[in-house]
Amino acid sequence: MNTRIGNEQLSVEVSPLGAEMQAITTADGAQWLWHGDGTYWGGRSPILFPMVGKAPNDTISLDGKSYPMSQHGFARRSDFELVAASATSCRFELMATEASREVYPFDFLLAVTHAVEGTAVTVTAEVTNRDQKVMPFGIGFHPAFVWPLSGATTDIHEVRLDNGAEPALIRLEQGLVVPRELASPFRAGKLVLEHDLFEADAMLFPQGAGAGLTYGCPGGPSIKLDWENLPNLALWSKPGAPFICIEPWHGTAAEVGGSDDLAQRPYAEVLGPGATARFVVRAAVRG
Rank of each mutant, 00 (worst) to 15 (best):
I139Q: 06
E13Y: 00
R77G: 05
A284Y: 09
G138P: 05
L230D: 03
R265D: 03
A277Q: 04
D79K: 13
D155M: 12
V12W: 12
L172S: 12
T276L: 02
G36H: 01
P266V: 14
H35P: 11
H72F: 15
A241Y: 07
A23Q: 11
D226C: 15
D162S: 10
P56R: 01
G118Q: 06
W34E: 05
T276K: 05
P218L: 15
G18F: 00
V121E: 10
M135K: 00
G43S: 07
S259N: 06
I170E: 15
V52I: 07
V256K: 06
L235M: 03
R44L: 03
V281W: 09
P167Q: 10
C217G: 15
L213Y: 00
R77A: 08
E81P: 01
A144Q: 13
A268T: 11
K65F: 10
S100K: 11
G258V: 08
K238V: 08
Q132L: 08
E158M: 03
N163D: 07
N2Q: 12
D261L: 07
V127H: 00
R77E: 08
N57K: 11
V285H: 13
Y104D: 02
A234K: 00
T122K: 10
D107R: 06
Q132S: 14
A283M: 10
A115V: 15
L109V: 04
G43N: 10
G36D: 02
G189C: 07
E81F: 04
P185Q: 06
T59I: 13
P105N: 06
S45N: 11
K133Y: 03
A253S: 15
V280M: 14
V177D: 03
F186K: 00
H35M: 11
S222A: 12
Q132W: 12
T153I: 11
F106I: 01
Q22V: 00
L176S: 02
I24H: 10
P179C: 04
L262Y: 15
E126V: 03
L62K: 06
V116W: 15
H250Q: 11
A144Y: 04
D58N: 15
